[in-house]
Amino acid sequence: MTKRLIIVIVGCGVVFGAIFGMKWFGNKMMNDFVDAMPIPPATIGAGKVQTMTWDNRLEAVGSFVPVNGTDVTTEAGGIVTAIHFESGQKVKKGTPLLTLDSARERGEYERLKAQAELSELNRVRREKLFKLEAISKSDYDAAATEANAARAAVQSQAGVLAQKEIRAPFDGLLGIRRVNVGQYLSAGTAIVTLQSLDPIDLDFTLPEQYVGQAQPGFKVTVNVDSYADQSFTGEVLAVEPRIDSATRNFGLRARLPNPDLKLRAGQFGRVTLTLPGNRSLLVLPRTAVSYDSYGTSVFVVLKKKEDPNAPKPKEMPGAPAGPTTDLIVEQRFIKVGEARGDFVAVVDGIKEGEQVATSGLLKLRNGQPVIINNEGAPQPRLDPKPAEG
């Protein structure tokens, strides 16, 4: 029994040893095959880093504001008896907009007016008597003072009466009417919006480092989403002399002609401020740049360097042939500046003439073999436009 048990144990050991040995040998051959397999090259588009001369300009965003704009309100309360305008109407300064009930105020005005006339007659009589030395100078002065007070009361009541007639404070375009005939309005109730839109102002901000460059009179070009194929031009009207301590920006106001009233108050605009002179910058295609949380980088295309001391990979029967390219990519972090059109300026991290990958970035990593194929790829432009047709 003991011999049989030993024979069985030895036999099992030989069988399992052979199985595990074959498994190990197979895995080793598989690993050697994979290690000998070259990394397949990725097909990419590529562009060169080059020097360009750009006109000196700054870009910002801003909001349009009216030269004059307000919600027309009432100074006094009352019931609306007449409305003299329509929503969206253009009006001139002084145009009647709305009339409030003024019967009581008008009656008081007529009473004060009659009282002022009587006071003036009394003053004239007292003046004649004073000249005849029939009354004292103090009696005449009292009559004159009473007449002056009566005239002042009439003027005051005339002002109250004028508050019942609301007029346009300046030329402009009316908005949507917010009141109706017969409605009671309390003092300060908004009647309609009035905006002066031709010309129109644009407020925007720039970082503090440009405070010495931006000056009144410089030209601005503005684009808005409502008219994507049209640009609006104007010039800087004023530069804020104070820098905001919270944002470290300073404000500017530009004024633009707006005869067609296409631009409206509160509208968003992209501003290009033109400065004197030109700048020479190092640029690369914008599609080459990867923006990540850990930095801004590009893949630089380089010639693969062969190390004579490096061990050669084992050749395995049946393994595919190596890559047919001597180009690889290297990821490099850079510092970018202003972007314009299809290009972005490079401040640091790359040199003129170097080649960078512009497409297929998602399949790249350090040391990745690449094949460049720019056939059919659109050429980057400073002023890209949508393709026609």
Rank of each mutant, 00 (worst) to 15 (best):
V222F: 04
V222L: 15
N223E: 14
V224Y: 03
D225E: 13
S226N: 05
A228K: 14
D229W: 05
D229P: 01
Q230K: 14
S231L: 09
S231P: 11
G234P: 03
E235R: 10
E235N: 14
L237Y: 12
A238D: 11
V239H: 10
E240H: 10
P241S: 07
P241F: 01
R242V: 07
R242S: 05
D244K: 04
D244Q: 01
A246G: 07
A246P: 04
R248P: 00
R248F: 03
N249E: 11
L252K: 03
R253D: 03
P257N: 09
N258A: 10
N258C: 07
D260Q: 15
D260S: 11
D260G: 02
K262Y: 11
L263M: 13
G266F: 06
G266E: 04
Q267M: 15
Q267D: 09
Q267F: 10
F268E: 12
G269F: 08
G269N: 01
V271R: 05
T272I: 06
T272P: 04
L273R: 02
L275V: 06
P276Q: 09
P276T: 03
N278A: 14
N278F: 08
R279P: 02
R279Q: 09
S280F: 11
L282S: 06
V283M: 10
P285R: 00
P285A: 01
T287S: 15
T287H: 11
Y291T: 11
S293H: 14
Y294L: 10
G295H: 05
G295R: 12
T296R: 01
F299R: 01
V300C: 02
L302Q: 12
K305C: 00
K305M: 11
K305P: 03
D307H: 03
P308G: 09
P308E: 03
P308Y: 10
A310K: 08
P311K: 10
K312M: 06
K312W: 07
K314D: 08
E315V: 13
M316R: 07
M316E: 11
G318D: 13
G318S: 12
A319Q: 11
P320V: 12
A321R: 13
A321D: 13
A321S: 15
G322S: 12
G322E: 11
P323F: 02
P323I: 10
T325C: 08
T325A: 12
D326S: 14
L327E: 09
I328D: 07
E330Y: 03
Q331P: 06
